[in-house]
Structure formats: structure tokens, C-alpha cells
Amino acid sequence: MTEDGGRVGVRGLTKRFGPVAAVSDLSFDAPPGAVTGFLGPNGSGKTTTLRMILGLVAPTAGEARINGVPFAALQRPARVVGAVLEAQGFHPARTGRRHLLACAAAVGVPDAAVDVGLGAVGLIDAADRAVGGYSLGMQQRLALAVAMLGDPQVLILDEPGNGLDPEGIAWMRSFLRGFAARGGTVLVSSHLLGEIEQTADHLVVVSRGRCVYQGGLDQLRASRRARVLVRCADPGGLARALATAGIVEIDTLPDGRLGVADADAVRVGDVALAAGVAVHGLVEETIDLEQLFFQLTTGAWRG
């Protein structure tokens, strides 16, 4: 890996399949030294986008570049990009080592890269076992070892946590963050929102083929004002008292509670006490990535 890693840039990327627009005018960057989480509901165009970045699908319009050039123009692509997009077609009778040796020959890297790759993904002890006896999680690690053979600058991964147990997911998180810390670029699609929340430095969220958010998780949280959720004996009376106190961003939730923005729990409690409204529950809302994702992808975002 070069010290400054690689950069993935997508500009105006569009892909139509007949009348269906799988991806529409999509633009984003995945910078070096960071894990970029690529999120979106099923059918939002994530896999199609990754395939266009890797030159496997031709865009209808726009472009995707890696280190400033299309994938097809990379002179030694395995030295620049490693990718795992879907379940691999492993021969069940072939050992993990022999599979990697065949892949190393195909991409033009020395056999010595095989043991490096096996060690990187923790499969040294299983290297001489038939892949047919591997668990799904071990097969995911083997696919990642293939991606790492060329010591790439960029990793592009589609749902790499599939089949991994909690220990394996924690290992994957550490692996990806370590790769980024050494200057590499990681673009990872995942439906494991809690895991992306702990792993990614940068988010790209797509819905219906379009980008609905790009930036850091902290910025996303900051753009969504936290609320105080209040259960009380007289919601209408409390809402009027809050408005009189200058607190006007108030929603009535389906369960009857009030959602109060621009005030902390102490302030809301003081207003309720002064107004003589009995409070039965008062909690500051915790905003996690799952809530933010739902709001972004369902059109409920009011940021």
C-alpha cells in the first residue's frame, strides 16, 4: 500500500435498466485514511454503484474514478483495488492455500503474498483444509484474503459481515480500521447499522438511487436536534407553558408523549413544575444511526 492510499470519486453516476433508474446522478468521495460506510435500503442501488466503480457495469451517464482514472485504465488493478462483492465461487475440494495460489497467479503477484494474505485474515491454521469444510464466516475471510493479495490501496466490500459471528464482526471492524489507519481507503456497504456506526468515519447514504447524505456521523447527529421526550398528565397544558417560555419546537408523538427540541430535561422539568403539570416520564432522546438512517431513507428527515 502506498502511504497516501487511493481515492474513490463518483460524479453524476447514473444507471438505467430500461425504464428503471437503479442509480440517479450519484456523486460522492471515499477518501484515503478513512472507512466510508455506504448505506441504503435494499434496492437503493448500492451494489450497482460498487459494480460500476469496479468496471463490471457500464454507467448510463457519469463516471467513477479510482486515483483519478476509471478502473479499466488502472495498469495493475490488483495493486490498487481489492474487492469482495458477493459470495465467492470456491471449489469445495480445493484448500484455502491452493485457492489463493491460483488467484495470485491470475493477478500477477508472487506466491509469497499468499501466506501474507492468510495471516492478515487469520486463516493460517485453516490454510490446508478444503474450503468445502469452511464456515460461511471463514469463506468471507478467504474472499478478503484474495482482495488483499496485491497489497491494495483501496478495499471495496459489499456486506463483509455476512456470516460472521460477533467475534468475527469485531475482528472485521478492527481489520478495516487498521487498514484505513495505514492510509488505505475503505468503501464498505452494509446493512449492519450498529456496526457501521462503530466502524465508519464517513457516511454515504443513498435512497432510490440518489445520495441523501454524505459526511461524518457526528455532523449527521448534530444536524438532527436532540429532543426531550415527556410523558405528562396534561400535554396540552405543558405545550402552552413551554411556548410561553419561548420553547416552541414541540411535537406530539403517536404514544401521547411530547417531543421537545431546543431544551434540556432540566429546563422542561422546571417549566412543568411551574405550570403545575405532573410529569410521569422525562428522558433525553438518544439518536442512533438506525433512527437517522430511517429518517433519511423514508423522507422523514427534517434536518
Rank of each mutant, 00 (worst) to 15 (best):
D125A: 13
V116G: 11
Y134K: 11
A143Q: 14
D111E: 14
L54H: 02
H99C: 03
A93V: 09
A78H: 05
Y134A: 12
R98C: 01
A87W: 00
R65W: 04
V146D: 11
H99Q: 07
A104D: 06
A73S: 05
G119I: 02
G68N: 04
G68R: 03
V116D: 09
G133W: 07
D111H: 12
A78P: 07
L56W: 03
E63D: 13
V57E: 06
E63M: 00
E63I: 01
C103V: 01
G119Y: 07
P77M: 09
A87K: 03
I124M: 14
V131M: 14
L54G: 03
P77H: 08
R129P: 05
V109S: 09
R79K: 11
A113T: 07
H99Y: 00
Y134V: 07
A93R: 09
A104H: 06
G137T: 08
A104V: 02
T95Y: 01
G119D: 09
T95G: 04
L123C: 03
C103P: 00
Q140Y: 13
I53M: 10
R76H: 15
A61H: 11
E63H: 03
I53L: 13
P110M: 00
T49F: 01
A61P: 12
A145H: 12
L123E: 06
A127K: 01
N67L: 08
L74Q: 02
P92T: 06
D111Y: 09
P70F: 07
G62M: 08
E86H: 13
A83E: 06
